[in-house]
Amino acid sequence: MQAILATLGYVLHPDGERVLLIRRGKRPDDVHFGYHNGLGGKLEPGEDVVAGMRREIREESGPECHLPRLAGTISWPGFGRRGENWFGLLFRIPEWSGNLRAECPEGTLVWTAIADVLAGRVPMRESDQHFLPLVFATEPRLFHGAMPFDQGKAVSWSYRVTTGVAEDLTEGAPSP
């Protein structure tokens, strides 16, 4: 399967009770138009997933991400506007620095209570409610999911959880 590689990051507020979301409302052709979503987007050629996630968050909201934590992966066959397949790497970002942008090119930045997100009180794609409890779990474990789409709607959801706690990503020196 060929897929568009993308990242989705959830920047956590220092209070641990809120997450930074984008209320997508600037482009009517956006598949997330009118919904709240995490920050992220497509990887650029030659870019690793952590660099891509950091770039997207910096471009969309301003902060520099430190020690992102991989929450899981999701295969989204048929998700794209024209039925493209997407593969997403989801991150929790508990450590960051810098200031939020006053303006976001994708919509409005909103600190949102995680409890409201998990309770379904925030306008989000219905399909997000399947994986967000895994992203925001009190004791998170790395998960790998599949969520096929047909005509813009998720048709199923399945996932596996690893047996250990998700590890922090650390940066290493390039291989010789």
Results as ranks from 00 to 15, higher is better:
residue 55 R to H: 03
residue 29 D to E: 15
residue 117 V to D: 00
residue 25 G to Y: 09
residue 172 G to Y: 11
residue 20 L to N: 01
residue 175 S to T: 15
residue 81 R to E: 12
residue 159 Y to R: 08
residue 137 A to H: 06
residue 70 L to Y: 11
residue 159 Y to E: 10
residue 112 T to H: 03
residue 102 A to E: 13
residue 98 G to M: 01
residue 24 R to G: 00
residue 171 E to T: 15
residue 174 P to A: 11
residue 141 R to T: 07
residue 167 E to S: 12
residue 26 K to G: 05
residue 45 P to N: 08
residue 125 R to S: 09
residue 113 A to E: 14
residue 108 T to Y: 08
residue 14 P to A: 07
residue 163 T to I: 11
residue 44 E to L: 13
residue 47 E to M: 05
residue 140 P to K: 00
residue 88 G to F: 10
residue 162 T to E: 15
residue 72 G to I: 01
residue 38 G to R: 00
residue 97 S to A: 12
residue 81 R to G: 13
residue 52 G to C: 01
residue 159 Y to D: 06
residue 138 T to Y: 08
residue 68 P to G: 06
residue 97 S to I: 12
residue 39 L to G: 03
residue 82 R to I: 10
residue 138 T to E: 15
residue 86 W to Y: 15
residue 64 E to I: 12
residue 33 F to H: 07
residue 128 D to A: 08
residue 16 G to W: 01
residue 49 V to S: 09
residue 56 E to L: 10
residue 103 E to G: 07
residue 20 L to F: 05
residue 151 Q to N: 15
residue 148 P to R: 06
residue 111 W to G: 02
residue 48 D to V: 02
residue 151 Q to Y: 14
residue 64 E to L: 13
residue 104 C to M: 01
residue 17 E to M: 10
residue 135 V to A: 03
residue 115 A to R: 10
residue 141 R to G: 01
residue 167 E to C: 09
residue 35 Y to N: 11
residue 142 L to P: 00
residue 22 I to K: 05
residue 38 G to D: 01
residue 139 E to V: 11
residue 35 Y to Q: 12
residue 10 Y to S: 02
residue 174 P to T: 10
residue 3 A to Y: 15
residue 46 G to C: 07
residue 26 K to W: 04
residue 150 D to V: 14
residue 12 L to G: 01
residue 168 D to Q: 14
residue 2 Q to L: 13
residue 137 A to L: 03
residue 116 D to W: 07
residue 86 W to I: 05
residue 92 R to G: 04
residue 34 G to C: 02
residue 157 W to C: 02
residue 159 Y to K: 09
residue 5 L to K: 14
residue 1 M to Y: 14
residue 172 G to A: 11
residue 127 S to I: 07
residue 58 R to M: 09
residue 76 W to N: 08
residue 1 M to P: 10
residue 100 L to H: 06
residue 120 G to A: 04
residue 99 N to V: 13
residue 74 I to Y: 05
residue 113 A to S: 12
residue 53 M to D: 02
residue 68 P to A: 07
residue 69 R to K: 12
residue 65 C to N: 10
residue 142 L to K: 06
residue 56 E to Y: 08
residue 138 T to G: 14
residue 124 M to T: 07
residue 138 T to S: 15
residue 46 G to A: 05
residue 80 G to D: 02
residue 24 R to H: 09
residue 127 S to G: 09
residue 110 V to K: 01
residue 170 T to L: 12
residue 23 R to F: 14
residue 5 L to E: 15
residue 51 A to M: 08
residue 161 V to H: 03
residue 79 F to K: 09
residue 157 W to M: 02
residue 117 V to P: 00
residue 85 N to Q: 06
residue 144 H to G: 12
residue 130 H to E: 14
residue 158 S to H: 13
residue 73 T to L: 06
residue 10 Y to P: 02
residue 148 P to Y: 05
residue 117 V to N: 00
